[in-house]
């Protein structure tokens, strides 16, 4: 079912990486829908395939990887565009990248170019996507920096990235991403490298932008706290599989997948002091080249049975809440 306000559909995405003569199935079955004016969080531990899924939407995957299966559909007013069929360096995707779908990366120091001024890097977006006079571009760049609450933007626009602090760099990158008012903003761990007080500033900005431009945000994070505060919908990933998908209230309060439930019980919650008891998940994440059979989580799962050696189907807990686990009813009953 496609809603009127759905702007991006990712359907059963599979991505393989071919390195050192080995094949890593980095993403094996991820589906979600991104809606206008809403934030979707992709959450999971390192190596679970959340960043890879996001890069696939932008078609920015590294050369030795391939979308094996599945569809990525961008819904526009002029009809659907099948992003997964486009040439990754062709003109169609380049017209979309940066203009319609923009991305914020985790580490602004490596994502921004140290030998160009910040202003130049913002103007670049206009050079490719808008026909504007040079002076107008410069004025727009200053305006964007001001909107990002960077002090003295007229002066800062001509500075280089090393002259910015960590939080300001991240804000400059958001300014760049927002330059052409994109319909979809993909943020890959935008605040992981930042302090919490600066993180609060960045989230504040992203909220403003969403309300002003009705943009859809795809936020990638490993922090359940961020999910609870910002997300409307959430997709939980484990070893390349989207194990649970639903509105944030449902997933965080009534988790149906044993992994989600175990993850929530293993993180300390602020304000509950030492009274809380953390229950760690036993074992560690498996080697991606030596994956367990069937459900990827079963070696660490308390609910595992023989049945888990087969790949679980997708079950619906409620109309919007789906889970990939044979025993989700038991998990729900146990909560």
């Amino acid at each position: 079912m496609v809603y009127v306000d759905t702007i991006l559909t990712v359907d059963n995405l599979h991505i393989n990486f071919y390195t050192n003569n080995r094949c890593n199935e980095a993403v094996k079955g991820v589906s979600f829908q991104l809606k206008k004016g809403r934030t979707l969080c992709l959450v999971g531990e390192s190596g679970c395939g959340k960043s890879v899924s996001a890069s696939a939407i932008m078609r920015l995957l590294p050369p030795l990887s391939r979308i094996e299966e599945g569809r990525i559909i961008y819904h526009t007013d002029q009809g659907d565009i099948h992003l997964h069929e486009l040439d990754p360096s062709g003109p169609e995707i380049r017209a979309i990248r940066g203009a319609e779908i923009a991305m914020i990366f985790q580490d602004p120091m490596t994502a921004l170019n140290p030998v160009y001024t910040v202003g130049f890097q913002i103007r670049e977006a206009f050079m490719y996507h808008a026909k504007m006079a040079k002076a107008a571009m410069q004025a727009k760049a200053v305006e964007l920096l001001r909107a990002m609450r960077i002090p003295a933007p007229e002066q800062r626009v001509n500075e280089y990235i090393h002259q910015y602090s960590g939080g300001m760099r991240q804000r400059a990158m958001i300014a760049m991403a927002m330059a052409c008012n994109p319909k979809i903003l993909i943020a890959d761990e935008p605040t992981t490298a930042l302090d919490v007080t600066v993180q609060a500033q960045i989230f504040d900005l992203m909220n403003d932008l969403q309300q002003k431009h009705n943009a859809a945000i795809l936020l990638i994070t490993h922090d359940m706290g961020v999910v609870a505060e910002l997300a409307h919908d959430v997709v939980v990933m484990y070893m390349g599989v989207a194990v649970e998908n639903g509105p944030v209230e449902d997933v965080l309060t009534r988790p149906a997948h044993p992994y989600t439930s175990a993850l929530l019980r293993s993180i300390p919650v602020l304000g509950q002091s030492k009274a809380q008891k953390l229950e760690p998940i036993r074992g560690s994440t498996p080697d991606p080249f030596n994956r367990p059979q069937g459900c990827q989580f079963h070696p660490r799962c308390d609910f595992a049975t023989e049945q888990c050696l087969q790949e679980p189907e997708t079950f619906s807990v409620s109309p919007n809440h789906t889970v990939r686990c044979w025993h989700y009813e038991k998990v729900l009953a146990n909560a």
């Binding site: 002090p151 602090s165 939080g167 300001m168 302090d195 919490v196 007080t197 600066v198 993180q199 609060a200 500033q201 504040d204 922090d223 359940m224 706290g225 961020v226 999910v227 609870a228 505060e229 910002l230 944030v248 209230e249 965080l252 309060t253 929530l264 993180i267 919650v269 602020l270 304000g271």
Partner: peptide
């Protein structure tokens, strides 16, 4: 106070008023 309010808490429905500090350290 600002530090405590800035920390995202993994509990739905506990979106508190965040004190957003201006500027940097």
């Amino acid at each position: 106070q600002a530090l405590l309010s800035a920390i995202p808490v993994a509990e739905v429905g506990r979106r508190r008023k965040r004190i957003v500090l201006e500027g940097n350290v």
